[in-house]
Design a protein around this nucleic acid. Structure first.
Length: 766
DNA sequence: GTCACATCGTCGT
DNA sequence: CGATGTGAC
């Protein structure tokens, strides 16, 4: 939920920012945001448990964008749920569950487009999705950290510790956790909205000397946060009024005065609310996080240092033993089941980056950045303006924020100039030859030539090209390059290395025994709005959908693969009904038309490969997981085109139950006690397993018009064929975060993004 | 002006 | 998740 309305509220503390302004810095990312947005592009596949990597590729686009701007990314993932958030999680699950029901109902009614919108809403980001992304990052030497609990606190910790100078997220909560710089709304052009802690006082309309970060945090909690609902009738505005009015430093006592200060006589502040307020506050301040450099869990802030009653930290998480904590932080174990899914270890010579399979745009896919997971990792020094922030913070709240650990003499002279630099950047003025970061920060206005506005596209193109051709031999300074001869880094003594892993193929194959079958029951009881009924009343009969293109037949499917096979719930009788959400492949299999192998014709492949933007194929999700499942030949992940082609050819061999092997999007919990009903989509949980089986009823299917999916696809193919080379270029450009080129400037969104970039200001300057 | 609530969009093509 | 619109005070 975050803090409702906080981002607009902090408008005065924010400014437009482009990634190029963060060059040379280290950025920690709330990866959930990317995964969630990426999952929209392939929501149906995810919900149905089909293999897809669209969401992963989407995230990698951002990663590449950061790399192209010479930024070191650290991807941070959510870990276990805090007890304090159990309610929120339950609500979300409920919401997903109901979306799922409505989607199924709409599908049953043949309203596919409507259903899709609901399918999108019930996608859950699972840890296995995170792990897919983590694996891709590992190949590229891009750091990932799974938070013990919430990614928010972990991000703040990396920021506080000086490991990451900026945090990228969509969640306004990050500000509460005390991040110094947070970049919101980052898009694929590289621009976003930067909110700085240093400017919070301005945003709150509070004098600098009267402002404390506590006041800001109290305000946010009062207005309602994830850990505590607000008092009725209290939002950000009232909360602000209160925290700026009260002089009482004892927050508990102050809370009692809310009704008086806000003229809300009817308002009651119970002791319970006060307790919960203090607990929520402690949760924000002291959540358990992971320190990758120390390889142990710690708290975001030490309760003792700030005098917080340890009792109040009851919702801020508990510590795990170091070894398990490391496994969790590396992403090797599922945070919920704590099952071991992988056995990556940064010290293991067998686990070194191999380079990810990427498009031709990024040949050198292994970054040169120093990994936080390497022993003796030295956090990069913050940029001067960041350091200034920390200095300010230190003077305001000595104990809450520490100074960056490693001072760098290179930065000592640059502080004043950065302000000028900021201004120049803000006005879109940038030197053509952007000097290396460290040097750039030391430039003065008088010595540089940065007076000529530079076309944004050109700048980006230039930078991207530079990044692409970056090689160790270039004279260009890359602040992240690991220099093995560097004196401030030394090899870790062998005895310091943790034993790579105790895992054996046997112990790590926790999926070996997985034979999942989930069923869920849906009753088509919910009603559509009158409007929707009107709109779709006539359309329903014409809807063309691959959901319904697989023909009739409903022979039972016997799972071919798993050593342990789905059992009772996959009885032929049950499988016979409900094919609504079944993948096309599954349906084919359902019809008994599967072929043993899925061999793609090279001619089909050619079209894709020759495109400037070939789908980045990645390794199968099961690659490093000894799941015990039989590996599909050449299955891997496939582009949507590939899926379609397979579907078109009808040569898919995927079995109905196979798609459960890639852990499908998690569905909401089964609502208990529902009766079976005709045309009901069902899921049933068994042994904590995650294979989802959703099938469609015969009866309904016969009511629905089955339209050749060939028709659809041929029209799609026409569209494709018509794509010009310019379009292809545009696509290719997007991959590395370039603006599309002049022609594209005319398009609405791009234009608006360009104008976001300071073109307005430049014109004002004239 | 402020708040609560419902609804929509997030991608990609 | 945020953004937006609407209706209630």
């Amino acid at each position: 939920m975050g803090i409702t309305g906080l981002i607009p509220f902090l408008e005065k503390a924010s400014r437009k920012c482009h990634l190029r302004d963060l060059r040379g810095q280290c950025v920690a990312i709330d990866s959930y945001c990317w995964l969630h947005k990426g999952a929209f592009a392939c929501a149906e596949k995810l919900v149905r448990g089909e293999a897809t990597d669209v969401h992963i590729q989407y995230c990698l686009k951002f990663v590449n964008l950061l790399l192209a701007n010479e930024i070191k990314p650290i991807l941070v993932f959510d870990g276990r749920h805090l007890p304090a958030k159990a309610g929120t999680e339950a609500k979300r699950r409920e919401s997903r569950d109901s979306s799922k029901k409505r989607a199924a109902e709409l599908l049953r009614m043949g309203k596919v487009e409507e259903a899709k919108s609901f399918l999108r809403r019930c996608v859950d980001i699972t840890h296995s999705m995170a792990l897919e992304l983590i694996r891709e990052c590992r190949k590229r030497n891009v750091d990932c950290v799974v938070a013990p609990y919430e990614a928010d606190a972990q991000l703040a910790f990396l920021n506080k510790k000086g490991i990451a100078q900026v945090v990228i997220t969509e969640d306004s909560d990050l500000m509460l956790f005390g991040c110094s710089k947070v970049l919101f709304k980052l898009d694929l052009t590289g621009s976003g909205l930067l909110i700085e802690r240093e400017k919070l006082a301005v945003a709150m309309g509070c004098k600098e000397e009267k402002f404390t970060f506590d006041k800001f945090r109290y305000m946010c909690i009062l207005s309602g946060c994830d850990y505590l609902d607000s008092l009725p009738g209290i939002g950000l505005a009232k909360a602000k009024k209160f925290v700026l009015t009260t002089e009482d430093t004892d927050i508990r006592r102050a809370l009692g005065k809310i009704p008086a200060y806000l003229n809300m006589r009817q308002l009651q502040v119970s002791e319970e609310y006060k307790d919960n307020f203090l607990k929520a506050d402690a949760t924000f301040r002291h959540m358990v996080v992971y320190d990758p450099t120390e390889r142990k869990q710690t708290r975001l802030n030490d309760p003792e240092e700030v005098g917080t009653d340890p009792e109040l930290c009851c919702n801020a998480g508990t510590f795990l033993e170091d070894k398990i904590a490391l496994q969790l932080a590396l992403g090797n174990v599922d945070p919920f089941s704590m099952k071991q899914l992988d056995n990556f270890h940064p010290d293991d010579p067998g686990c070194q980056p191999t380079g990810g399979k990427t498009s031709s745009w990024n040949q050198s896919s292994v970054t040169k950045h120093a990994s936080v997971w390497k022993t003796n990792y030295v956090p990069r020094p913050a940029a001067p303006d960041i350091r200034q922030n920390f200095a300010t913070q230190t003077s305001q709240k000595p104990k809450e924020f520490i100074k960056r650990p490693v001072p760098n003499p290179d930065f000592e002279e640059g502080e004043k100039n950065e302000t000028i630099d900021d201004v120049l950047h803000a006005y879109g003025i940038k030197p053509k030859d952007d000097p290396p970061p460290l040097k750039r920060l030391c430039l003065t206005l008088s010595t540089d030539k940065r007076t000529k506005p530079v076309n944004f596209d050109e700048v980006q193109a230039l930078e991207a090209m530079e990044a692409l051709e970056a090689s160790p031999s270039k004279t260009k300074r890359n602040p992240f390059v690991v220099n093995s001869t560097s004196s401030n880094r030394r090899s870790a003594p062998a005895d310091q290395l943790l034993s790579p892993t105790k895992l054996t193929p046997e112990t790590s194959s926790l999926l070996r025994n997985v034979s999942p079958v989930k069923r869920i029951e849906f009753k088509p009881t919910e009603k559509l709005s009158r409007f929707k009924r009107t709109v779709f009343a006539n359309e329903g009969q014409k809807i063309i959908s691959r959901f319904f293109s697989a023909g009739a037949a409903s022979t039972s499917v016997s799972p071919k693969t798993a050593p342990t096979t789905p059992k009772k719930s996959s009885s032929p009788l049950k499988q016979e009904s409900n094919l609504y959400l079944m993948s096309p492949e599954a349906k084919l299999a359902h019809r008994g038309e599967q072929t043993p192998t899925k061999k793609r014709k090279s001619s089909e492949r050619t079209e894709i490969s020759d495109s400037p933007n070939p789908p980045c194929k990645v390794e199968p999700a099961v690659e490093q997981v000894d799941s015990g499942f039989v590996e599909e030949p050449e299955s891997g992940f496939s582009s949507s085109q590939k899926e379609n082609e397979d579907e078109q050819k009808g040569t898919s061999s995927r079995l109905a139950l196979d798609f459960g092997r890639k852990e499908p999007a998690r569905f909401g919990r089964e609502s208990a006690g529902q009766n079976e009903d005709a045309g009901v989509v069902k899921m049933e949980e068994e042994d904590d397993d995650d294979v989802v089986e959703i099938v469609e009823t015969k009866e309904v299917k016969t009511e629905l018009p089955v339209v050749s999916s060939q028709t659809m696809r041929s029209s799609a193919a026409e569209t494709k064929a018509g794509s010009s080379s310019q379009q292809k270029k545009n696509v290719a450009c997007r991959r590395v975060g370039l603006a599309k080129g002049k022609a594209v400037k005319d398009t609405g969104p791009t234009q608006s993004k360009l104008s976001m970039f300071g073109f307005q200001k430049k014109s004002q300057l004239k």
